[in-house]
Design a protein around this nucleic acid. Sequence first.
DNA 1: TCGGGAATAT
DNA 2: GATATTCCCG
Length: 325
Amino acid sequence: MREDDTDWFTRWEEELPSPEELIPLSQSLISPDLALAFDIRLPNNSGQPHHHHHHHQSTPPPQLPSSQANSSAEFAADSADLGSGATAGAGDEPARTLKRPRLVWTPQLHKRFVDAVAHLGIKNAVPKTIMQLMSVDGLTRENVASHLQKYRLYLKRMQGLSSGGGGGSDPATDRLFASSPVPAHFLHPNRVPSSDHFMPSFVPIATLQQQQQMAAVAAAAAAAASAHLQPPQFHHRQISAAHYGSPTANGQFGSPPATGQFGSPPANGKFDQSFLARQTQQQQTLQRMSTPSLHSPVGNYIEDLESANANGGRTVLTLFPTRDD
DNA sequence: TCGGGAATAT
DNA sequence: GATATTCCCG
């Protein structure tokens, strides 16, 4: 109750998937339809035959060709020109006219979302800023807006049902949100600590326009500063949401994130160390005063591209599916 | 254009 | 039925 801030914050970092976990995914984040359209064989992660057999109705074989052979073509197209960001170049992107697949909000992705909102503050927690702070490649404002809407409803509901905590019935709806700890101030949009902590907030270098990012970061920094919260230590890990079809105005996709390690952004290289050092200090100081039931969050990331194909052959894209059931 | 909410679609 | 997308309005 009291160490919520530090607690959740500390755990937050640990729960974050390592870049290695994300990179491979981002590479194979080609939507099935897209792959099929181009006759591309997606990398076969034949390591975990996790069959999520729901109930097959009278639906045709919507299942993807499990013959996801090796990633023959890395789909160089994906790296077409994302990094450049300037999409005005009118590239010859193939899947330009295709529609985006439904974005599946995995617990990890949601966590990222919550973190962003937490650091931004309720007031600044608007779709755009959240999206920018999340630095999720492929995430659109609409995605965030929609999710934010749902999340707010969830928060509201929680306030109403504050009584009776026990083994009540938690709809699957809550499951996702419950996945991430809800910051205290989320439920109490009353006052916000005015304590300010100086700290160089890190800029999540994404494929987005740096200008926007700067704005977002500034907002985040301001929010954090006025919220006495620790700086958004959004490491440079970039999360790729997916390779959708067409890059529109804000559709910068397929930008190969910092492969290997995080040290990608030059301007942040130095910050990284100092910030890391700080963190180490904090950890040492805190040293986990109490570890009641801290499960090891890391190590549950399974690569999975297909999921939630319940209704029919719908192209869905999942980021980091969790096997936490 | 953006943010928020409701409607619609899958 | 649930979820994300889309439309509409401030």
